[in-house]
């Protein structure tokens, strides 16, 4: 036990000074530091070169720099054939089928607006298909995307598309309808065919895919107005882009159907609170 002279106070202090090899200081102890990690087996870290408190023999520490390697993977699409295979797990005789056309607008407070950062938040339209029988239900939730950001210089160009799982995506408006088995079979083939299309922001986007699929099994198709957007930072080509189908105009249509007491209004949900989410999807099956 140390005997302290009178008028002295004992202070138990941890000192942390970290320096990089090139003298540039960086914190090795930030748990979220992108380039450096330290595995240490003591309650509190401290670290200082040539410091009398630094005793390597006492602690088992490993320091290493993390090299963030260039990543070269392209996520594959949801395999729609495999996704539809999962519906085979539910017995078809007497099964109930339904399809729901869903949309998520980028600005819940102003559902008909496209935010100024045009192209960054376009909103999304997607499909929920459900088959249920004898207490067993399979649901698949999917939507159509461009494989990457369409860009600002040529936002209307056709580009490779991808189908992705859209489970738990926010739903601001939806319209649900039930299907017969024949309609379901037709829908399955139509989904495969439409998924082959290229993505084009103005002429074939997620809303075109969703509405085309939904309308393929309807007698009275849903029709929406065109949507003209201004591209503030586009310097090549026209600054006005006319989109044939959009989540914004689909929202307007579904809301007018709901407000106008359309025969299908009980099957329409409008919710701009952000609380309504798409159900869990099922994944792929052989």
């Amino acid at each position: 036990m140390a005997i302290l002279p009178k008028n002295f106070i004992a202070i138990d202090a941890e000192i942390t000074i970290a320096g990089g090899a090139n003298g540039v200081p960086f914190s090795l102890f930030d748990p979220n530091h992108p380039f450096a990690h330290q595995n240490q087996y003591r309650p509190l870290p401290y670290y200082q070169y040539e410091n009398k408190f630094n005793d390597y023999s006492q602690f088992n520490r490993e320091r290493h720099l993390i090299i963030e390697e260039e990543l070269t993977i392209t996520p594959p699409p949801l395999d729609l054939k495999k996704a539809f295979n999962c519906f085979n797990q539910v017995q078809s005789a007497g099964a109930k089928y339904s399809i729901k056309l869903c949309l998520d607008v980028p600005n819940n407070k102003n559902p008909l607006a496209l935010p100024p950062e045009t192209g960054s938040q376009t909103g999304h339209t997607f499909i929920v298909i459900t088959k249920s029988n004898a207490g067993k239900t399979i649901t698949q939730v999917f939507g159509f995307y461009a494989k990457q950001h369409p860009g600002y210089l040529f936002p209307w160009r056709a580009m490779p598309s991808i189908i992705l799982n859209n489970q738990l995506r926010e739903i601001n408006a939806s319209l649900e309808m039930s299907l017969t088995q024949d309609q379901f079979d037709k829908l399955r083939q139509k989904a495969f065919d439409l998924a082959k299309n290229k993505y084009a922001a103005d002429s074939y986007n997620c809303t075109n895919f969703g509405m085309d699929l939904f309308n393929s099994v309807r007698i009275k198709p849903i029709v929406v107005e065109k949507f003209t957007v201004f591209l503030p930072v586009n310097h090549i080509g026209p600054n006005l882009l006319e989109l044939t189908k959009t989540p914004q105009m689909l929202f307007k249509k579904l809301k007018s159907m709901k407000d106008g007491k359309d025969a299908e209004s009980p099957n329409i949900i409008i919710d701009t609170t952000g609380k309504t989410k798409a159900p869990l999807s099922h994944g792929e099956c052989n």
Partner: peptide, 14 residues
């Protein structure tokens, strides 16, 4: 795919 709202927030929800 941030342009269509498939973002970090949705990743966290999932």
């Amino acid at each position: 795919l941030n342009y269509a709202g498939r973002n970090y927030q949705l990743c966290i929800v999932n």
